[in-house]
């Protein structure tokens, strides 16, 4: 049974719940009317339409991905074509190249990511961004000890950058990476964009 085929647009979204702000994603998705599963074991990936790898500490989540047997299963989930989105730590884990991460993450996107690229916590910041494919004006983004996307290679492409050109969001087919935290803002547009991945053109999110 695929819950996404019931015609209502209501999806079952998994949020990787090993560490990090998975409840913030959960609450936002539930406010949008979707069903949410907290994923702590690889077998739970079978029942979901899309997966979010949340913000948190990338070294911690990378260790828990390995110790809980998630490495292969998440890669297979990414390859299945279902939408997968990494926010901040999640974006680090999705990247094929990362500086200073001593464990393999998920390594599925052709992006190169620099951890803690803006400095320490006192340098964490808020800024407005234009995101490709997003209507309704700039997106107010929170960057917390955030990573920077240094390079994007085909078939990945950048979809948002800061004023100085620093890339902070990228898309590669069904995969999405943002170095900021839409789950902390109350603005659901990026979550809607994410869940529209794979939907035929012209079919609205509602």
């Amino acid at each position: 049974m695929n819950p996404s085929t019931n015609g209502t647009g209501r999806k079952t979204v998994g949020v990787l719940a090993l560490q990090g702000d998975f409840r913030e994603h959960r609450e936002m998705l539930e406010s949008m009317g979707h069903a949410v599963r907290e994923i702590r074991k690889p077998g739970q990936l079978a029942d979901i339409d899309a997966l979010i790898v949340p913000g948190g500490e990338s070294t911690t989540i990378a260790r828990l991905i390995i110790s809980n047997g998630f490495h292969g299963p998440i890669r297979e989930f990414c390859a299945s074509g279902k939408p997968v989105w990494g926010t901040c730590a999640g974006a680090i884990l999705l990247a094929k190249q990362v500086d200073h991460l001593d464990r393999p993450g998920i390594e599925m996107m052709d992006i190169s990511v620099h951890r803690n690229a803006f400095g320490r916590q006192v340098d964490s910041f808020e800024a407005n961004l234009d995101v490709e494919g997003l209507d309704g004006g700039p997106f107010h983004a929170l960057f917390i000890r955030a990573p920077r996307i240094d390079a994007v290679s085909f078939p990945a492409h950048a979809i948002a950058a800061l004023e100085d050109g620093t890339i902070v969001a990228a898309r590669q087919g069904n995969l999405l990476a943002t170095s900021f935290h839409p789950e902390l803002t109350g603005d659901t547009r990026l979550h809607e964009l994410f869940l529209s991945i794979g939907r035929p053109p012209g079919v609205s999110a509602k």
């Binding site: 500490e57 964490s124 808020e126 800024a127 960057f143 000890r145």
Partner: peptide
């Protein structure tokens, strides 16, 4: 324009530590 040291980024780092 970007802003540092805001309440949202202070609370936000604690949110990233959750479950840890």
């Amino acid at each position: 324009m970007s802003q540092t040291g805001t309440w949202a980024v202070k609370v936000g780092l604690a949110q990233m530590l959750k479950g840890g």
